[in-house]
């Protein structure tokens, strides 16, 4: 993929993340920060499909933005054909792993782990 396309994706995921994370934080604060973290409230949040959807979207957006950011920082430090390919592959693998691990929590809780 061309770097110009990647930077557009980077900016798009950044702007979308700001909107969704703001929503996520507002939901926590309006419920009362400490109360919103009570076990029953957290389980109820996960089982409310629109909110679970927001969490999944945030997970995907931030993983793409974060690991591409890490790739950019690492490529600024050092360059080289093998190094660049290695960094890109490692970042994609980490991104997929984080999305899979986070999705497991969201899906399991939404489908009634408790």
């Amino acid at each position: 993929m061309r770097e110009s396309t990647i930077i557009r994706i980077h900016y798009a995921t950044a702007l979308a993340s700001v909107a969704f994370v703001a929503l996520h934080v507002m939901i926590r604060v309006t419920q009362g920060f400490a109360d919103s973290l009570e076990f029953e409230n957290v389980v109820a949040n996960y089982q409310f499909l629109p909110y679970a959807g927001i969490l999944e979207v945030i997970l995907v957006l931030l993983s793409i933005h974060g690991f591409n950011g890490l790739r950019v920082v690492l490529l600024e430090i050092r360059q080289g054909r093998m190094y660049e390919r290695g960094v890109t592959v490692a970042c994609i693998v980490m991104m997929v792993a984080v999305i899979a691990y986070g999705s497991r929590t969201i899906f399991a809780m939404n489908m009634g782990a408790f």
């Binding site: 076990f39 957290v42 389980v43 996960y46 997970l59 931030l62 993983s63 974060g66 690991f67 950011g69 890490l70 920082v73 984080v98 691990y101 986070g102 497991r104 929590t105 399991a108 809780m109 782990a113 408790f114």
Partner: peptide, 26 residues
């Protein structure tokens, strides 16, 4: 950016504790 990425990964791990039930979450 790197600090936020570290927090994000830690947050994903931290919230997965809910799968261990009330004891794990608390």
């Amino acid at each position: 950016g790197l600090g936020l990425l570290a927090y994000f990964v830690a947050h994903i791990y931290e919230t997965s504790a809910i799968l261990r039930g009330r004891a794990g979450w608390d």
